[in-house]
Amino acid sequence: MSLFVWSSIVVVVILCALAAYSTMVAANQIQKSNSELDTSVDPAIRRHPFLLNPIIMMYIVVGIFMTIVLFFYWARGE
């Protein structure tokens, strides 16, 4: 297999692991609170609502990984 396939597999595995971990953390927080309803919003979240959103953070992480992979292949000349 080519280097592109292996590097893509590594990126996908890392992203799946991060997504699974963040899902488990969210599920544990819901179990600890014994409620599916939201509680009051923390002041830090009010100030930075996008930075503490896990979906948006995953898009940022994916963008960074893809930029690194694309830059790597561009630098190699492929």
Results as ranks from 00 to 15, higher is better:
A19H: 01
A19I: 10
R76M: 15
Y21T: 05
I45L: 10
S2V: 02
T67Q: 01
S35I: 04
Q31G: 02
V69M: 06
P49M: 06
A20L: 14
Y59K: 03
M58R: 05
T39S: 12
I9V: 13
F72Y: 14
F4V: 10
S22Q: 12
S7I: 07
D42L: 04
L15Y: 02
G77Q: 06
W6A: 13
S7G: 06
G77E: 11
V10H: 02
P54G: 01
M58G: 00
Q29K: 08
Q31I: 07
I64T: 07
E78P: 00
I30W: 01
P54N: 03
K32P: 00
Q31Y: 08
N34G: 03
I45H: 02
M1Y: 12
H48A: 08
M58W: 03
P43Q: 15
V5A: 11
N34M: 10
T39H: 06
V25A: 11
L3W: 11
T23R: 10
D38P: 00
F4W: 15
F50H: 09
L18I: 14
M1N: 09
V12F: 15
A19F: 06
F71A: 15
R76I: 13
P43C: 03
S40R: 12
V5S: 11
T23S: 12
W6R: 10
L15T: 01
M24A: 14
Y21L: 11
Y59S: 08
E36F: 11
V25N: 01
M1A: 13
S33A: 13
N28A: 09
N53H: 05
V12N: 05
L70S: 08
I9L: 11
Y59Q: 07
A75Q: 11
I60A: 12
Q29H: 09
L52P: 00
L70P: 00
I14K: 05
A20I: 15
I55Q: 05
N28K: 11
A75W: 15
R76S: 07
V12R: 05
T39I: 10
S35H: 02
